[in-house]
């Protein structure tokens, strides 16, 4: 099965929640030096609830689609629930098995989210 299913290509071509948040309360950026993928995650967390999440950056379809899919699930989650998201959950969102080489691309969004949750502005 190709890694590039319609769902991934759709999220890559039409990313959801793409952009930055002027009033972000939490923010972090990461990069994947192997591919040159770059990702920034902006969050607005109020009373421990994620009210908004946006991502920006550039990179391969897997890293960008994974960020798009992840941000869709974040709104109204408590920060504890967001912290509890596991790599397996991201793989489920992507819906395709990732080879070890592409795992870093697929999980960059989760890494960025965890970093952002720890980085109050």
């Amino acid at each position: 099965m190709s890694l590039y299913q319609d769902c991934i290509l759709d999220h890559y071509r039409n990313p959801r929640n793409h952009g930055t948040l002027l009033r972000a309360t939490h923010r972090a950026s990461t990069n994947n030096p192997v591919c040159g993928d770059k990702l920034q995650m902006d969050l607005i967390v109020k009373n421990d609830i994620i009210e908004d999440a946006r991502f920006s950056g550039a990179g391969c379809a897997i890293s960008q689609a994974s960020a798009s899919l992840l941000t869709e699930t974040l709104k109204k989650k408590t920060s504890a629930d967001a912290r509890a998201i596991k790599p397996a959950d991201i793989l489920k969102l992507l819906g395709v098995p990732l080879s070890p080489n592409r795992l870093k691309c697929g999980l960059l969004s989760l890494e960025t989210l965890k970093k952002a949750l720890n980085n109050k502005m």
Binding site: L3, Y4, C35, G36, D37, C60, A61, I62, R102
Partner: peptide, 21 residues
């Protein structure tokens, strides 16, 4: 199109190339 996507998709068609820096 990111080089890693190109390399991966070519790989699915048995075409081996390199992507990255």
């Amino acid at each position: 199109i990111h080089p890693h996507d190109i390399a991966h998709l070519l790989g699915e068609k048995n075409i081996c190339i390199r992507a990255g820096h």
